[in-house]
């Protein structure tokens, strides 16, 4: 009895095995052996940022040469290099991106015109009278982007606006599509400063309802005149990240403190004993932090210095260096008032 049952199950397993091996040989499409190796290098979160629903589909297209190895955005440069190695090609550069929120007008800064107590979702708030803030470009703070982020990189701060944690952001861009006010943008990860306002309204009106709103004064354009990296377009400054510019000067010159700096502390400039007192660095300093008599060693006021590094380029004896560490902020991204 029990042997008959065992025999029967053995035959069943044999039949199943034969059916499967036959079907995988005869029926299954011939798979490029590279596909599995490529798929192992991918993050496997099926984020869809490459334009395909699954990581496996992307791997298949890469193996067929119909998709570029750098197409995986969360994987970034490291994944791109590994895939090109599998493909046997020379690696190509991919720019690492991160998401930023172009608003810093939270409860403390932006004026409210009504109270919203509906569905806690930005799209729903937009439908019921464009939200409760007077500013029509402000972050609604109801977290549609937070729910869209598969990596938990976005949070609503205590001040009621969305902030991206650069350490967790992979630059997949799902939050960009989730924001009904198009406040989220992907910027090169190398950049630490971006504009925290997207309001195209007239300056005098903006200052009535937001204490950190851009009034289009043009001071940031003046501050970056050398690189011409900022231009006013449609009543709002546009930052050109392709230009050679770190935007530190613009951020700290802005009278409305519209810029958001993800760096908490920067190295400060120090002038050592090589200084021959040529005074070349005194006029270039945007914050007038350098003082000193001619042909005497100059002194940097560490309280004023913002670490922009402009003076390094004009010193002919290389007496100027940046001293100190770099610290990033992850919570409540906002500019410290100096």
């Amino acid at each position: 009895m029990i042997f008959a049952a065992l025999l029967f199950l053995g035959i069943t397993a044999l039949v199943g095995g034969v059916v499967l091996s036959l079907s995988s040989q005869r029926l299954q499409a011939q798979m490029n052996p590279l596909v599995h190796r490529i798929e192992r290098e991918l993050p496997g979160v099926n984020c869809g940022e490459c334009g395909h629903p699954l990581c496996g589909v992307f791997a298949r297209l890469v193996a067929d040469g119909r998709e570029k190895p750098g197409g995986c955005i969360p994987g970034g440069h490291a994944t791109s290099v590994r895939i090109t190695a599998i493909m046997g090609n020379a690696p190509q550069e991919t720019e690492a991106l991160m998401a930023v929120v172009h608003c810093k007008g939270g409860h403390a800064e932006a004026r409210v015109r009504s109270r919203y107590s509906g569905i806690p979702d930005c799209h729903a708030a937009m439908l019921s009278g464009n939200g409760s803030l007077i500013c029509q470009e402000a972050c609604l703070g109801l977290g549609s982007c937070v729910r869209a982020c598969p990596y938990g990189a976005i949070a609503i701060t205590e001040n009621g606006i969305a902030a991206v944690n650069p350490a967790l952001c992979t630059g997949c861009g799902r939050c960009v599509a989730a924001c009904p006010r198009s406040l989220i943008e992907l910027i090169p990860r190398l950049h630490k400063i971006f504009l925290g306002c997207n309001n195209r309204d007239h300056g005098s009106r903006v200052s009535e309802y937001c204490s950190v709103g851009c009034t289009t004064c043009g001071i940031c354009v003046e501050a970056t005149r050398a690189s011409s990296a900022i231009s006013i377009d449609d009543n709002i400054p546009r930052l050109d990240y392709a230009k050679h510019e770190n935007f530190i000067t613009a951020a700290y010159k802005c009278p409305q403190r519209c810029f958001i700096d993800t760096v908490r502390a920067r190295p400060k400039v120090n002038i050592d004993t090589k200084c021959d007192g040529c005074t070349a660095c005194v006029p270039v300093c945007p914050v007038e932090a350098i003082s000193g008599e001619k042909s005497q060693r100059h002194i940097v006021n560490k309280e004023k210095c913002i670490g922009c590094g402009i003076c390094l380029g004009v010193c002919h004896v290389h007496a100027i260096a940046l001293w100190g560490g770099l610290a990033y902020r992850t919570e409540g991204l906002s500019l410290k008032r100096r």
Partner: peptide, 11 residues
Amino acid sequence: ALVLASGHALE
């Protein structure tokens, strides 16, 4: 076996 084989056929 049947489901996986039909998956192969579908593919």
